[in-house]
């Protein structure tokens, strides 16, 4: 059954659950922005973004600590049950995935700085495209979380295959380009790391999709055979 929208009898308890949801939404928003900026910086080969990304990462980490504290407090003082229990557990899992995504976005931004000295690179468009897909996945799955809607979560879960395919193609093409032009090996490695980080972010979006599915339905998201 769907999550209850009915208010708790104990108002403070309901407020604590709301605050947890708010924290999670804020953390998701921050990570999304971080990733967008990091990918844009890679495309521009722009080193200037580093301090900004670093500051945001500190915010993301602080929010994760905050969410963990809230969850601990809810368990100790409120003993959440049923949908409240599932929402609380999911928040904990999602926050840890988001923290990892923030970390990977930071790595991507740092690679953008490493690319700053190089001429425009081939396959940048493909990286941008992969980044756009991963951002979309992350956004959809976070929206699915806040609206407790499993349909987009399941879609994101299935679309991870597309991310993997694009990533594999990009690696293959980059290796080919590097074989043809050894001058591409230096910047090409940075691009490969960016792509790898994006692929990992896709995996975290998948984890979040699974957490949303469990939160709403109380059952794990498993392959139904027609992905």
């Amino acid at each position: 059954m769907a999550l209850s929208r009915t208010a708790h009898i104990v108002t403070a308890y309901g407020e604590e659950l709301d605050q947890l949801a708010d924290d999670l939404a804020r953390m998701g928003g921050l990570v999304e922005t971080q990733l967008e900026k990091a990918i844009a910086a890679v495309v521009r080969r722009d080193a200037s973004i580093k301090p900004d990304i670093k500051a945001r990462e500190a915010q993301v980490n602080a929010l994760q600590v905050d969410i963990e504290k809230r969850v601990l407090r809810l368990f100790a003082l409120r003993q959440p049950l049923a949908t409240d229990l599932r929402m609380t557990i999911s928040a904990l899992k999602i926050a840890s995935d988001l923290e990892r995504v923030g970390d990977l976005a930071k790595n991507i931004a740092y690679r953008a700085g490493d690319l700053a000295g190089y001429a425009p690179l081939p396959l940048t468009q493909q990286v941008e495209r992969l980044g756009a897909i991963v951002i979309k996945q992350l956004r959809e799955v976070l929206d699915a979380q806040s609206s407790a809607d499993i349909e987009p979560a399941v879609r994101v879960w299935h679309s991870d295959d597309e991310v993997d395919e694009r990533y594999n193609t990009l690696v293959r093409e980059m290796l080919l380009a590097m074989t043809e032009d050894s001058g591409l090996v230096g910047p090409g490695v940075h691009i490969l790391f960016v792509a790898k980080n994006l692929e990992r972010i896709g995996d975290h979006a998948t984890n979040i999709a699974e957490a949303v599915h469990f939160m709403v339905t109380a059952s794990p998201l498993v392959d139904d055979g027609h992905s």
Partner: peptide, 17 residues
């Protein structure tokens, strides 16, 4: 306690109206 089927059960055990 983790996944009640009926909304009345849900509301009761989670402390809702």
């Amino acid at each position: 306690f983790t996944n009640p089927r009926d909304s009345r059960t849900q509301d009761y055990i989670t402390g809702r109206f």
